[in-house]
Design a protein around this nucleic acid. Structure first.
Lengths: 201, 201
DNA sequence: CGTGGCATGTAAACGGTTACATGATTTA
DNA sequence: TAAATCATGTAACCGTTTACATGCCACG
């Protein structure tokens, strides 16, 4: 019996918050709610579901035969919930996430003029986009109060994402300034840096 | 001929800044200078070195004494430098780094009391430690000016690390506050909380 | 003389993505 | 009826880590 990977706990986690989900649902849930710091592929999810059933951590619910779409949902068992709790209590491992952007930046002096500025522009744009969607979610939740016990914790991850995105954007501006003074002759993207407003967490 | 992995470019990158390095040196350089956002293992470095030699991107320098197993250094070639530059100009891919801490936080409502606070304490400590070392490097560089063309870019990654660490620390404090008010104000409806005190780390 | 750091390397296992295959159901 | 989406699943491949094996060399 293989040692379960983190994917199993993602599945157990989502099944602990929803009564019943299919593999497809879980994939979507991952993308939509933890997409800014996690990802899962079907090739990982479906085998994990089978293994979790074999281990008794989840059970198939809503058998596919009932006229509806061919889809199989699962529910968490008490043993599954216990396994999740055990994993949650374990200290997380804090390996440095490989950041290709920072790596290219680090070797930036070797790059052709404008290349580094282009990369910074790229994270600036993606951070702006991320920030916008996170702020939107934040506003929605603020306007729709609920007693959902999961919400405070989910909001903490949301706030973390917002804060980090803001910091990244600030850093981008200072980085552009640094580049401008460092090599005055280098070609920068024509994009004027506009003052986006920041709502700080 | 296999498509080179990012490891190859890390090697080329460091060999572009130093005239001659061994596999061991490269490993150490990765840990010491980009360790907060990258990592490489020997199992990755040594095969890559051989492949890079076969491709003509690097050449062995300081040949090992005949028959003896000693340290072997390598130097980058012009083709190697060109390959590095080509890679640098390519847009980086921005996949969400898997963050186990945020994942456990997201499912925190399922955890036993104190578990989440313990995790937050853990990143708080590691962020403090990281910040201290980065600030130290920053101060050192500030006091030892140099014309090294790589320095401005390396400093940008350093500043990014410092900014993100600071943000993380700020977030930790607000997260502790959130947890405190949440636990004190709203009682969890599912299970009456016993008088078990939270274990403080 | 032995310990610990320097140094190189490999095999196996592992986690994960990608590409592919299949087909049902809804919607335009 | 065609296209898009829903939905499940697998095989191959890839990059990476881990554990292991080997041996040099300096220092106490």
């Amino acid at each position: 019996m293989k040692r379960p990977s983190q994917t199993s706990y993602v599945i157990l986690g989502f099944l602990s918050t929803e009564p019943s989900l299919s593999g497809y649902d879980i994939r979507k849930a991952v993308q939509e709610s933890v997409g800014h710091f996690w990802s899962e592929s079907y090739g990982q999810i479906y085998p994990s579901l089978k293994r979790l059933v074999a281990e008794g951590f989840i059970v198939p619910s809503r058998p596919a035969s009932t006229g509806k779409r061919k889809r199989q949902e699962y529910s968490i068992t008490e043993t599954g919930r216990a396994s999740l709790r055990r994993w949650l209590a374990l200290p997380f491992q804090h390996d440095p996430p490989r950041n290709e952007f920072l790596l290219k930046l680090f070797f930036g002096s070797e790059a052709a003029p404008g290349v580094v500025a282009g990369h910074i522009h790229q994270i600036q744009e993606s951070s702006q986009h991320l920030l916008a969607t996170l702020v939107e979610i934040d506003a929605f939740v603020q306007n729709h109060p609920s007693q959902n016990p999961h919400q405070p914790y989910q909001m903490l991850t949301l706030k973390a994402g917002i804060a980090l995105a803001c910091t990244t954007l600030d850093w981008c501006e200072s980085a552009f300034a640094t580049l401008a003074t460092a090599n005055a002759g280098a070609a920068l993207p024509q994009q004027p840096i506009d003052k986006h407003d920041r709502n700080r967490a």
